[in-house]
Amino acid sequence: MDVERGRPVVVVMGVSGSGKTTVGRLLARRLDVEYAEGDEFHPPANVAKMTSGSPLDDEDRRHWLDTVAEWIEERLGSGRGGVVSCSALKRRYRDVLRRAGSGVWFLQLDVDLETIEARVAERTGHFMPVSLVESQFAMLEPLGSDERGAVVDARSSPEETAENAAALLAE
């Protein structure tokens, strides 16, 4: 990937349960850059809302996306790059993140609804209930051909998915 200054920041995006955290950590290790968990940028009110089974609206996401964008901007400004997991389901959300700098690269993890529902049902200790999975798919605006990044099939192992992403970044 040709980045004017330093290393890119990869935003691992997709619906809840697509593997953003696992693939993001593996990719960050592979690229030898810092990893940030986008869910940790949510204010407590957002977490409480999702835990109760209510989807976030655009206003709920505004501060969260701005905070993720600040992290991206700092990483790009330092030239160190990084990987952050962030659902970034809508193009306008990605536009907020893209404003952090030209070195933002999106990795969309593509997984079907049935697989995601099974994954989310098996998770423990996460605030996103299975009841919100369909709302995530309804909101998802796939990465556009004019957006810097790639879509990868994330039904394979997280290791294979991260390796495929690293190969795409090397192109």
Rank of each mutant, 00 (worst) to 15 (best):
M50E: 00
T51Y: 05
T51M: 01
S52G: 14
S52R: 15
S54Q: 14
P55R: 07
L56I: 09
L56P: 12
D58Y: 13
E59Q: 13
E59F: 06
E59C: 00
E59V: 13
R61T: 08
R61C: 03
R62L: 12
H63G: 10
W64I: 09
L65M: 03
L65R: 12
L65T: 05
D66G: 14
T67R: 15
V68T: 02
A69I: 02
E70T: 14
E70A: 14
E70R: 14
E70S: 12
W71P: 00
W71N: 02
W71D: 00
I72A: 02
I72R: 01
E73S: 15
E74L: 10
E74G: 04
L76H: 10
L76W: 09
G77P: 08
G77E: 04
G77V: 06
G77H: 06
G77C: 10
S78C: 05
S78D: 08
S78H: 04
R80H: 13
R80T: 11
R80G: 13
G81Y: 12
G81A: 05
G82F: 07
G82M: 05
V83L: 03
V84L: 08
S85F: 07
S85N: 03
C86N: 07
C86Y: 10
C86K: 09
S87P: 12
S87C: 11
L89A: 10
L89R: 11
K90E: 05
K90N: 02
R91P: 06
Y93V: 01
R94V: 06
D95W: 06
D95V: 12
V96S: 05
V96T: 15
L97T: 05
L97D: 03
R98D: 00
R98S: 13
R99I: 01
R99K: 14
A100S: 13
S102F: 01
V104H: 10
L107D: 03
L107W: 02
Q108W: 15
Q108I: 00
Q108Y: 14
L109R: 06
L109F: 10
L109E: 02
D110I: 02
D110R: 12
D110T: 05
D110Y: 00
V111L: 10
V111P: 06
D112H: 06
D112N: 11
D112Q: 04
L113C: 01
L113F: 14
L113G: 00
E114G: 09
T115Y: 01
I116V: 15
E117C: 08
R119F: 07
R119H: 07
V120I: 12
V120R: 04
A121S: 15
E122R: 15
R123F: 08
R123G: 06
G125V: 10
H126C: 02
H126K: 08
H126P: 08
F127A: 04
F127Q: 02
M128R: 05
M128P: 09
V130L: 10
L132R: 07
L132C: 08
V133E: 02
V133R: 09
E134G: 06
E134W: 08
